[in-house]
Amino acid sequence: MDRRALESAGAHFPYLQGLWTIPMGFTIPLAGVTNLRGGPHGAWLLAVVVGLVGLAAASGLLIWWYYRDRYGNVTPTPSRQVRHVVAVGAWVAVLFVGANRHLLWSPTSSICIFAVAFALATLAYYVILVGLRPHHVLIWGTVLVAGLLPVWGGLGVDRDAWAMVALGVPLIGSGLLDQHLLARAVAFARSSDGEIDRVGT
């Protein structure tokens, strides 16, 4: 029996439910689209908002059913709950600094501070909560480097909005890989039970 596999399946379960990034992956680009200066207006804007919010809500409901019926539910230990609050706090704090127009932002900058802050905030979130996995480093490291590349100047004041539109992809990709990790952790916990069952009988 693999003690660590069983403990890890329980302790990390609430934080590796990566499918939740699908509705988030719809809403963050929505925030970007609505912030675009030359973006959709009037009926078009309404259609985009209703469409993406509807997709986010529908996918959220399906995901909620899926986790409830397929995996069940756990209440994390108080220390894990505190870590979660700290992780979310760190995510919000880093993003606040990166997105705040009065701090690091400049209309003439050729890099995208928002994308850099989003990547750093997400990496910090994972470090605090579940530890960095290779796909976190790969995906969010790529976003970090992309944000630092001096290619954003041409987008002017719209660059944060375009970054939000693009961030939906790495967010969903990272979440799907988290989900894969979760499924593997649960399968590994089950198989480690099987081993001891055979040994113990």
Binding site: L6, E7, S8, A9, G10, A11, F13, R68, D69, R70, Y71, G72, N73, V74, T75, P76, T77, P78, R80, V186, A189, R190, D193
Partner: peptide, 14 residues
Amino acid sequence: SVQAADFVFLQTTT
């Protein structure tokens, strides 16, 4: 490793 778990979760992991 948790404060509480429901029946479905225990069934899934074990």
